[in-house]
Measured scan of single mutants.
Amino acid sequence: QVATSTVRILGMTCQSCVKSIEDRISNLKGIISMKVSLEQGSATVKYVPSVVCLQQVCHQIGDMGFEASIAE
Rank of each mutant, 00 (worst) to 15 (best):
M34K: 00
K29L: 12
Q1P: 14
A3D: 07
Q1L: 07
V51L: 13
S37H: 11
M34T: 04
Y47G: 01
Q1K: 13
V36D: 00
V57K: 02
S20V: 09
V45W: 03
L54V: 07
S69F: 14
V51Q: 11
Q1T: 12
N27Y: 07
Q15G: 13
M64V: 04
H59I: 15
C53M: 11
M64E: 01
P49N: 05
L10W: 14
S5E: 09
K46T: 15
R24E: 11
T4H: 07
K35W: 07
S20R: 15
R8S: 08
K29Y: 12
S5N: 09
E22I: 08
I21Y: 03
L28A: 03
D23A: 13
K19V: 10
C58G: 08
E67W: 12
G65Y: 05
L28V: 08
V36K: 00
V57Q: 01
I32G: 00
Q40W: 12
C14G: 05
V52L: 10
G11V: 05
S69L: 08
R24T: 09
C58V: 15
S5M: 10
V18P: 11
Q55R: 09
T13Q: 07
C58E: 09
M12H: 00
S42F: 10
I32C: 05
M64C: 03
Y47R: 00
S33I: 05
D63Y: 10
G65C: 04
V48P: 00
E22F: 08
I61C: 02
E67F: 14
I32D: 00
Q56M: 10
G65H: 03
S37W: 08
S33Y: 09
K35M: 08
G62C: 11
T4V: 12
M34N: 00
F66S: 01
M12C: 05
C17M: 05
L28C: 04
Q60P: 02
S5W: 06
D63N: 12
S37G: 03
V7Q: 00
Q40Y: 13
C17S: 04
L54G: 01
C53V: 08
I9G: 00
C14D: 06
I21Q: 01
V36F: 05
Q55L: 13
A3L: 11
F66M: 03
V52P: 00
S69Q: 10
G41C: 09
A43E: 04
I9S: 00
I70D: 05
I21H: 02
F66C: 03
Y47P: 00
I32Y: 05
L54T: 01
I25S: 01
A68D: 03
F66Y: 13
K46L: 11
V51G: 01
Q15F: 10
K35D: 07
A43L: 06
I25F: 10
D23T: 11
C17W: 05
T44S: 08
A43D: 05
S16P: 04
T13R: 14
V57G: 02
T4Y: 09
K46P: 04
P49T: 08
C53F: 07
S20M: 15
K29C: 07
N27E: 13
T6P: 04
K46V: 15
E72Y: 09
G62F: 10
Q40C: 09
H59P: 02
I25V: 07
C17N: 06
S69V: 11
M64S: 01
F66R: 03
S42I: 13
E39A: 13
I21D: 02
D23E: 12
N27C: 06
V7T: 00
T44G: 03
A68H: 03
H59M: 15
D23Q: 11
A68N: 03
I61D: 03
V57T: 01
C17E: 14
A3S: 13
R8T: 10
L38T: 01
I21C: 04
Q15D: 12
M34V: 15
A3F: 14
Q56T: 13
D63K: 13
G41K: 12
F66A: 03
T13C: 05
